[in-house]
Amino acid sequence: MRPFTYERAESAAGAAKSAAEAPGARFLAGGTNLLDLMKLEIERPTHLIDVGRLPLAEIEETADGGLRIGAMATNTAAASDLRVRTRYPVLTHALVAGASAQLRNKATVGGNLMQRTRCGYFYDASKPCNKREPGAGCSALEGGGRGFAILGASEACVAVSPSDMAVALSALAASVETVTPAGTVRTIPIDEVHRLPGDTPQIETNLEPGELVTAVVLPPPPEGRQEYRKVRDRASYAGGLFSLALAGERMALGAVALKPWRATKAEAARAAGASGAEAAEAELADARGLGGNDFKITLARRVIAAALEEGMDR
C-alpha cells in the first residue's frame, strides 16, 4: 500500500471541498472495497478523507411517504430496518444477497454505490485495463471469461457493476442525494448515477470530482410485487452472474452491464400485454456475448421470463 495522509471529515460539504482541493484524494467510509484495492495498489490515493463518522447514518421517513437512507448507514442497518424489510423487501433481499455478514456490517450504502467492478483484469495490475490506464486496452476482450457484460458494453470495457443493492434501487426508482465541492446539494435519479463505459470507462459515475453521496431516497413503495433473484456459482457469498429486481411495474437487471440495467423494454412489453418470454426477448434483443459469457444471455432470458410469468400467475 502506498503512503497517504488522512483526515476525519467534520461535515459532508467540508469533505467534498477538501476532496476537490486534493487531487488524488478518496473518500473512506467502510473501506471494504477501497482498502482491498489499495493493498493491490490499484487504488493509490495520496489522501484519505474519512467520512465514516459523519452523522449520515439515519434512516428516516420522508414527507411523501418514502424513506431517506443516510449514506453512512451500513448495508446491515439498511437491510435490517423494519420499514425497509416491510415496505421495500426487494432492497433487503438485494442487500443480504451481497457480500458476507462481516462486510455488510462495515460497508455503507454510499460505498456500495461507489464500489468498483470486480473484473479480474481490472484487479490484475499486470494486464492492460482501460479503467486503470485509459488507452491501455481491454484485456477481457481477448481473455475470455464468464462474468462480462452482455448489454451496454464497448470496445473499451466489458466489465459489470458488482452491486446488488443498486439493482434494487433502480427497480424502486430511488434517487441519490449528493453534496458538491461548491456546497450545492443535488438529487440524481439512480439510473443517471452510473455510466456505461463508452470510450471513457475510467469515468464510472456522473458525479463530479469531490462530490459526496449523502443519502439514498426511496419514493413511496410501488403497488405490486417486489422480488430479487440472483443466480451465481455458489449459494452464498459470491458475486452474481445475473440478477433481477422487480418492484411493481419496474424491473432492473444486475451483472449484465457496467451499471444497474433498468429493463425499460421489458417493462414496456409487459405493459402492452406481452408474455414473460416476449418481454425478455424485447430486453435482450441487443444483448451480445464474447463467447465465454454467451450463456448469460440464455440465463437472463430464462430468469426474466420465469420471474414475470410466475408473477402473472399470482
Partner: peptide, 13 residues
Amino acid sequence: GRRINSCLSLAIM
C-alpha cells in the same frame, strides 16, 4: 459488538 473483517479496516478508523 459487531463482527467485521479486521484486515479491511485501518486501525485509525
